[in-house]
Amino acid sequence: MTALTPRPTARPVHAARTAFVGPESRLSFPRVVRSEWIKITSLRSTVWSLLMIVLSGVGLSLLLAATMESAGLPDGPSVGFTLTTVTLGVMFGQIVAAVLGVLAISGEYSTGMIRSTLTAVPTRLPVLAAKAVVLFVLVVAVGLVTLVGAWAATYPLFAAAGIATSLAEPGFFVAILGAATYLGLTAVFALGIGTLLRSAAGGVATVLGVILGLPLFLPLAALAFDWVADVGPFLFTSAGEAMAALPLDAPAGTAPVSGGPLEPWAAGLVVLAWTGVSLVLAGLSLRRRDA
């Protein structure tokens, strides 16, 4: 590396300066979004994380579909059954999305990049908003690719068993959209936590505590306090599962999709609220604290 000694030039700085940096060069939100897009897509960790979501999602669904006969098949084609198989990867994908969300900001603190970022955008909040937009769009898109990919990959197996369902079945695509949206919101929720805590370890631990720890802890707490059980559907993960499910009154065929008692749209609002609180706290912290 050091062998490549850069050769300095003594060219005057003002040469061609007006050609590239003029009065039209100034901050705007779409430009900050573009900057964040360049940032997130230029890191290898992002590429690996997104690949992992796709591969693990499709892989897990294939594995389940390949072994579904031993678990018992529905009598005929069932949207609910297909959906359970196709959305299996969301369980793992949400962990990757959470890590991606935390790293999107903690990586800037650990490397010092945050100082460059905040001197370019000293009002700070547009950075957080732009990161949220970029993460959401990227993860939802990858989530959709994963889920549709899982459906396509398992289709031949379902067809062979005579229970294949099409993407166009009522409720199916909306549920997949819900699952992908949940993944995207998980990443944004994690971004907020990461901004608050500024550390990868602390951020990931906290987010995993919320999405994996709380659902484990809650049933135990419900043994001591009855009312705690009522909170269950409003947990981040429970609501997320409901987002990826068919509406409660849907003719779901045989196996009903596991999920909370919330309707998908209500569950979506619950996850949105979790994400919103996380982002607002993150914004307050980002604005107030020294970088």
């Binding site: 940096v21 060069s25 705007s28 900050v32 360049i38 940032k39 460059s116 370019a120």
Partner: peptide
Amino acid sequence: KHLLAMGATHGIGKA
């Protein structure tokens, strides 16, 4: 990419 991302916030391009 670092410089590109920094410049992008102000619409400062590749050139």
